[in-house]
Design a protein around this nucleic acid. Structure first.
Ligand SMILES: Nc1ncnc2c1ncn2[C@@H]1O[C@H](COP(=O)(O)OP(=O)(O)OP(=O)(O)O)[C@@H](O)[C@H]1O
Length: 758
DNA sequence: CATGCTAGTCTTTTT
DNA sequence: GACTAGCATG
């Protein structure tokens, strides 16, 4: 990797890339509309591009970046370009490459906030109080550390969940607050007000582990700059231009960091959309948009209003939905495109049918020539991907689960990386603790507790504590030998690490530690897969220059970048879909409690609801041509079937842009839809017939409580009444699904809660 | 200290 | 229903 600091070797008037053509706008500007072009041409001074979905914000940002480079206004290494996710960073890099070619490789400072934070911290680790090989802890490690602290203080974990403390600490870090800056009185209710003290202790522990958590990657940079004006000045000079994508998702700490860096030249350009702010739970602060204009008095604001992505109906549906939010800046969006289909709302029976129907629709579109990669299923929560995965596996529909279960989160992979982490950073006691008894070495909880005691008492690492306890002869039997052996092993591995062959090192460790052996002897059916994953891990290490490179990568870039170019349907969360676009988008699971998420509403009330609504807006606006919303009558959740009601968001879609599909096969929809141009107030009750039917059915046919759902309240031959189909006789009974021969002459599958005994 | 069982939690979303 | 932390047992 090129040294980021070598730019000083260049003189200012060296032109890194070709100068633009003499006359007319350069090719990469072609096709931009007037405000877009203005934005791309406004290189100097603070610039805020505030615009709705699909208006070309990202495109403008990238064009502008290309423009800075081609006009020679700055070298690639002098541009700070921040994105929010690794995926977005990758995407931006590729799009810039398409314009400027391989020069993009020297864009050392293009990345996520966190990746950039790490780079800065490694350059100045002495000032940050860490050594350069510091470990980045993920949320799992973080939680374990918090637990240790809570336990050390004899706090009842049942009463004060360590997760809550971890959340509080994250929250403070997101706001840019060190322990001594947290306003007194915050978190009073946690562990009798010890929350802030625990935070301080947590930070101290991180230092002694030579580790930083995700929040630190921003916070410690911020503190570094605040405390060391000369370092800040260095970076202010270095970053001639700052570009920020998805600005609405920055948190306070990130904002403060940007503001410090931009203070000199103020060449900062942020693009964002307040309606797409969906990371509030992670500290994102929409107020940063307003703050930008206040803090940068000279700020120019450009609004983009023409949408190039979606049809009128998709725009109309999503626009109508988002209008239900009170707290928004408000934007206009229009499109030149004509035609297009309405957004469909599809009631289906249950998750399996949801997957079946979507599978069929996908195959149908594929037959008509649409690429699978132009279709996506966007879900609220990760577990929803499963029903599709299972269905598509049997159907043979090529699909890709984006995000999802991550390779580096697998237990066996984490075990191995723990070995590597401890080799790389002997202070990393968390890693040491994880593998101290994996494979089994006869070192149990009692021994580990002893080690913790010593390490606390004598202020040393866990491994040092282990060495001491052996020296002192405080250990008996098997544990003494195996622990001593392990320490020797690590010493030897560290020796070998100096050869800088991290792949050979890993293979040695796998072999000598007995870890591979452990799985080879394991008789469980998945041991084979685990072994394969170990091989996969070693292969994944190949592109990296060294152990530290690799470790940093896996802590920072959790996703497995399977860069296969095969044509596949994407299945991912709504969060993961931000910034992407597809011809056809499927939106399953639009049910109360799932979407909007019950938890979000419980924890954040109206604010939470609005964020959920923005999420729905993001989902709909990913679609270029078609959007299909689904909701089920029966959802399998927490190991049992629930009967959810359709999401309120469905009712909030303006009728003019929506088409309600009549139930596909079996569904208890009795009358026509209750959708209207002016959605009813939620508190007044839900004007969807399915809901009314259901409550009535419940009253009339009480079912025995606690019975398994496979037993129905009806039996074959029962006479029943259905609001739409009238009277009929039950033919078959499968759980709460009934097949009924109606007297009007048809046989229908219906849900038992939609009929009553007659 | 290892193993097997039970009860409780969990499904929001990501760096 | 799946996973896990915590407990009782060998
Ligand atoms: N001037 C233009 N002419 C034609 N197409 C355009 C123009 N500007 C943008 N587009 C297209 O519109 C689509 C959306 O662009 P882009 O992803 O940059 O939007 P965005 O504002 O970042 O969207 P979002 O906020 O929803 O992520 C892209 O397919 C892009 O190519």
């Amino acid at each position: 990797m090129s040294d980021p600091f070598d730019i000083d070797n260049f003189s200012a008037d060296d032109n890194p890339l070709e100068a633009p053509a003499e006359s007319g706008p350069p090719a990469y500007m072609a096709g931009l509309n007037a405000p877009q072009e203005e934005a791309a041409n406004t290189l100097d001074g603070p610039l805020l591009i505030l615009a709705g979905a699909g208006t070309g914000k990202t495109r403008v940002l990238i064009t502008r970046l290309a423009h800075i480079l081609t006009t020679g206004s700055a070298f690639p290494g002098q541009i700070l370009a921040v994105t929010f996710t690794n995926k977005a960073a990758q995407e931006m890099k590729e799009r810039v490459r398409a314009i400027i070619g391989d020069a993009v490789e020297s864009m050392y400072w293009l990345g996520t906030f966190h990746a950039i934070g790490v780079k800065i911290m490694r350059n100045h680790c002495d000032l940050v109080g860490l050594s350069s090989n510091f470990t980045i802890l993920d949320s799992d490690d973080q939680l374990r550390l918090v637990k240790q602290i809570v336990r050390a203080h004899d706090i009842d974990e049942k009463r004060f969940n360590p997760r809550i403390l971890a959340g509080l600490i994250d929250g403070w870090k997101n706001r840019g607050l060190l322990p001594n800056q947290v306003p007194a009185g915050e978190a009073e209710h946690y562990a009798e007000g010890k929350g802030i003290t625990f935070y301080a202790e947590y930070q101290a522990r991180l230092k002694s582990l030579n580790a930083a958590d995700f929040g630190d990657l921003i916070l410690l940079c911020l503190v570094l700059f605040q405390k060391n004006p000369q370092v800040l000045a260095e970076y202010q000079r270095r970053f001639r231009y700052i570009l920020v994508d998805e600005y609405q998702d920055t948190n306070i700490a990130q904002y403060l960091l940007l503001r410090l860096l931009a203070q000199g030249h103020q060449n900062i350009c942020c693009v964002g959309d307040d309606d797409q702010s969906i990371y509030g739970w992670r500290g994102a602060e929409v107020g940063n948009i307003l703050r930008f204009e206040q803090d940068f008095a000279a700020a120019k604001v450009i609004r983009l209003e023409q949408n190039y992505r979606s049809t009128k109906h998709i725009l109309g549906a999503s626009g109508g939905l988002i209008e239900a939010n009170q707290n928004r800046l408000g934007k206009t969006l229009w499109t030149e495109t004509t035609g297009g289909e309405k957004v469909t709302v599809n009631p289906v029976w249950d998750g399996r049918e949801e997957a079946r129907v979507i599978g069929e629709m996908i195959e149908d579109r594929q037959r008509k020539g649409q690429q699978l990669s132009e279709m996506a299923i966007l879900v609220r929560a990760g577990f929803q991907t499963r029903e599709f995965e299972e269905r598509f596996l049997t159907l043979g529909v090529p699909h890709r689960i984006v995000g999802g279960y991550r390779f580096y989160e697998r237990a066996e992979v984490r075990d191995v990386t723990s070995y590597l982490r401890h080799v790389n950073n002997p202070g990393d006691s968390l890693a040491f603790e994880r593998i101290i008894n994996v494979p089994k070495r006869g070192i149990g909880a009692a021994t580990v507790t002893k080690l913790h005691h010593i390490s606390r008492q004598e202020n040393c690492t866990l491994a040092e504590a282990a060495a001491r306890i052996i020296d002192r002869g405080d250990l008996r039997g098997k544990a003494k030998n195996t622990l001593g052996q392990l320490l020797q092993d690590f010493a030897r591995w560290r020796d070998q690490a100096r050869d800088n062959d991290h792949i050979a090192l890993t293979e040695t460790i796998l072999d000598e530690s007995g870890y591979s052996e452990m799985w080879r002897l394991d008789k469980s059916p998945d041991s084979q897969g685990k072994l394969e994953n170990l091989g996969e891990l070693v292969r994944a290490m190949e592109p990296f220059e060294g152990l530290d490179d690799f470790l940093e990568h896996i802590q920072l870039v959790m996703e497995n970048s399977q860069s296969d170019v095969q044509d596949k349907v994407s299945i991912m969360t709504l969060h993961g879909a931000k910034g992407l676009e597809f011809e056809t988008v499927f939106l399953p699971g639009w049910e109360e409690d799932l979407f909007p998420s019950k938890k979000s509403l419980e924890e954040h009330g109206e604010k939470g609801l609005e964020e959920e609504r923005r999420l729905a807006y993001v989902g709909l606006t990913r679609a270029k041509k078609e959007a299909h919303v689904f909701h089920v009558a029966s959802r399998f959740l927490y190991g049992k079937y629930t009967s959810p009601i359709p999401s309120r968001f469905i009712n909030e879609l303006p009728a003019a842009h929506v088409e309600i599909q009549q139930s596909q096969g079996m569904y208890g929809q009795a009358t026509t839809s209750g959708f209207s141009d002016s959605p009813p107030k939620w508190s007044q009750g839900y004007n969807n017939p399915t809901q009314l039917d259901r409550s009535r059915a419940k009253r009339q046919t009480p079912r025995p409580k606690g019975r398994s759902t496979t037993a129905s309240a009806f039996s074959i031959g029962d006479r029943v009444f259905h609001d739409k189909f009238g009277y009929g006789a039950v033919l078959t009974c499968d759980g709460n699904k009934l097949e009924v021969d109606f007297e009007q002459g048809s046989v229908k599958k219906v849900m038992d809660s939609f009929v009553s005994a007659a």
